[in-house]
Design a protein around this nucleic acid. Structure first.
Lengths: 229, 229
DNA sequence: GCGCAACGTGACAGTCTCGTGACAGCGGCG
DNA sequence: CGCCGCTGTCACGAGACTGTCACGTTGCGC
């Protein structure tokens, strides 16, 4: 899981340690040395989580947290505060300001990572996918299953996502680039022809069950899921 | 959804914070600073949910919870306990006493609201207490026991909670993160792979009794409890 | 019919996921 | 104290999955 973490911390040594640990845990790190820099960085692209030092030059972390909660677009971004021992008494204020968790210095990087993961986990909401039926195929989102009539079809992760996307976006042509964006996720680089291969695999998986011809090639453009031949 | 929440908490700062958050979420808040006040408030009008601090002057939250469970009219009122870090080990005792969920301090108001809503939702659907049967397995909620046919199965605490969760949420895939949230509790920091190990242990516990294949792996996504292969 | 570009297909090596056994820490209990 | 049940983590390996390539096939304009 690739996540963007904004680290707002003026002390270089801590910043570097944190950055090192986060990168090792496959997260992207953005720095900000003070509140102003943080606000700039956020307005650019809101991160998935904000690590906020309690004491900052100019504006305290708490003020910044309050401000972010009011801001548009960052109201739901989880915040974890870094506090030194003894500052804990203000915890309640922080919680009121919408801070999600605290990590008290000195902390182990291991603990920090664990906390971050826990908060991220909590933050990401439910996946509200029902079940869709089309062209003799049925895909059960919650159960993560695919049926052709009554028989269940075994299907790989990528094939599943691809099929799911197609069934929720039927009767429309998508280019390879669009499919890569939607099914693979925007931030990965893979060859466009890879889509071809997965289309092929999906067709091959479905074909023995008589649900043929649902995924159509539109030469020079892309692919389309359609009930009509 | 207008609900009445009884907050039993002696520390004023936390009480105020909680009250503030709850009111913002359109809930009615009743205060009680100790167990006696709580009992009085309850006998007046039973609330829809009780928020109970672990440590109270006079009587611990746990005792109060037990007492409420025995009381007429409050036996079904959901209880959420507030515990400080480090008191978590008694979680099992709490579950036995009929506590519905735990929130570990420090918590964010958002998390608290989310938990409260979840518990209320669950209480509405009334799946809590009875015994559930599925796939040749029977789980006796109140007695905390598991049967395969007529023979009882010895099972550890975590395995029990995991199985219980699965049986009350069958035919649906859950990611490791979701399982950690639901089975371990939202504010505990464990590796995701730990789920694998407990799944393994649960499978191994059930397997000698012929109830095989109930917990299925959905590669790249999570696990699913299902009677169908 | 020809040539070209687009697409289908099979193979393959690297990567990732998951199952599994082992192990150390921690309370509980005799 | 030593033993025991339970838990979280780790390391390892088998197997599934994936991205890419090379080559065959098809469609299309001329």
């Amino acid at each position: 899981m690739h996540k963007r973490i904004l680290v707002v911390e003026d002390e270089a040594s801590i910043r570097d340690m944190v950055a090192f640990a986060l990168r090792k845990a496959d997260m992207e790190v953005i720095h900000a040395a003070d509140a102003r820099a943080a606000l700039v960085a956020i307005s650019d692209t809101p991160p998935d989580l904000i690590l906020l030092d309690w004491m900052l030059p100019g504006m305290t972390g708490l003020e910044l947290a309050r401000r972010l909660r009011g801001e548009q677009g960052t109201a739901e971004v989880p915040i974890i505060m870094l506090t030194a021992r003894g500052e804990e008494m203000d915890r309640v204020n922080g919680l009121e300001a919408g801070v999600d968790d605290y990590v008290v210095k000195p902390f182990s990087t291991r603990e920090l990572i664990a906390r971050i993961k826990a908060v991220l986990r909590r933050a990401q909401g439910d996946d509200g996918a029902g079940s869709i039926e089309s062209g003799g195929l049925r895909i059960d989102g919650p159960a993560h299953r695919v049926y052709a009539g009554d028989t269940q079809i075994e299907i790989g992760p990528t094939e599943y996502r691809l099929l799911h996307f197609f069934m929720t976006h039927a009767e429309r042509v998508y280019s390879r680039a669009q499919l890569l964006d939607q099914v693979w996720g925007g931030s990965v680089y893979v060859e466009e022809r890879t889509v071809d291969v997965h289309i092929r695999r999906l067709r091959k998986t479905l074909e023995p069950f008589g649900v043929d011809g649902l995924i159509q090639t539109v030469r020079g453009t892309g692919y389309r899921f359609s009930v009509n031949p």
